[in-house]
Design a protein around this nucleic acid. Sequence first.
DNA 1: GGCGTTATTATGTCTATACATAATGACCTG
DNA 2: CAGGTCATTATGTATAGACATAATAACGCC
Lengths: 227, 227
Amino acid sequence: MGWEGVRDEVLRRIRARDWPPGAVIPGEEALAVEFGVARATVNRALQALAEAGLLERRRKAGTRVALLPVRKATLDISIIRQEVEARGEPYAHRVLAARMEGIPLAAALRMGVPAGVSMLFLETLHLAGGRPFAHEVRWLNPGGLPGRVVPDFAGMSANEWLVQNVAYATGDIAFSAEAATVGEAAALGISAGDPVFVTERVTWTAEAPITFVRLLHGPGYRLRTVV
Amino acid sequence: MGWEGVRDEVLRRIRARDWPPGAVIPGEEALAVEFGVARATVNRALQALAEAGLLERRRKAGTRVALLPVRKATLDISIIRQEVEARGEPYAHRVLAARMEGIPLAAALRMGVPAGVSMLFLETLHLAGGRPFAHEVRWLNPGGLPGRVVPDFAGMSANEWLVQNVAYATGDIAFSAEAATVGEAAALGISAGDPVFVTERVTWTAEAPITFVRLLHGPGYRLRTVV
DNA sequence: GGCGTTATTATGTCTATACATAATGACCTG
DNA sequence: CAGGTCATTATGTATAGACATAATAACGCC
């Protein structure tokens, strides 16, 4: 029995309530003996279950079944082009605006910089099969970029360029539902006031804030967790 | 240097483009020698980075820096009561409807059962500080529950009861933005057509589908990733 | 009894070694 | 040259043993 086998058996016992919520389960040593494996193998299995939120582990106190397991859902944040192509539709994008501009307060707060700082403002429309798929508004901090060089984003969207050139950064993401403004509705080909799915993302490197992007998807868009 | 140290150093080299996207990085053995640790320690570090989507590993082929790293965002799916209380507001809920009913096609498709099967239909309003916080519509399969016993959900919401009693199940989650119907708007105290943030969740155990729930959050709600 | 100190203990991690597994690339054969 | 076979190789996993760490429980002191 490998560590996945141990994991599955422990999971089975949790689900079967052999070990009810809140109960302390046997120690790694005991389980290792029972399953006939090394303690390290049990450790790997229990760590995986703890990571998933089903077990709570504390040194000395032992391992217990989580009382209110926090289910962790994971989302794949992929490039919009990939997302569109995965639907079997041809991707295209149009840059609607690209200019240096002082950033407004809302964006400044999220990026943790003073309002009014000059950044590159980008407005982009992403198309799937020729129809509007997502509307993107972005502030980009040129000072945080390698070589401080910014391409025009005609050939490659900022989304994709950043992933390839400033990738491996950290960030926060928030999702919400909002009513489309007149301008947003026009870009997406919907009516003002229609509900839009909003993704807001802030990206930093260790040194500097990189970008704040606000992405709008029109009606019909669904964001799904990966299994 | 522990495995986290190795992970951080590898991450640093990726970000610094010492190892550019697509490049094959040295093998575990070589890195172990370089860092002066055991191969198992390097393995742990590289596995963590592969899990995060920054490295791609294949037996024999080696480890390479991901060309288009798929960033994985994780969400904590907590109990609504906890979510409300975390905001410092008192939680309450009201069961608006609870009756056996044949499930409609949309719910049947998502649960993978024939339409019209009789299930418990629940409509619940979750309140934060006395104001509507979320509107919940749920179909619950009594056959999948332990002892086939279903409480009334006056004292504890179905949300919380399920987590405690049928927990550790698997599920799919999808998010979208929709316009509130007249009935939904009335329940949430908003206007019909206002954008609502919709969470749809299907839950199974190994044996049977358990529940399909559609959760509506009014304007102002934001779903955030955990760091 | 209250409180600070110490011993104990379960998990966390590292090591060295070994074998398993998958996939590549070279080799061989028709 | 096409196609199949096999050796090679990097990762995947298991092992026993050891020490580190954190947190509880026991102890002793006042």
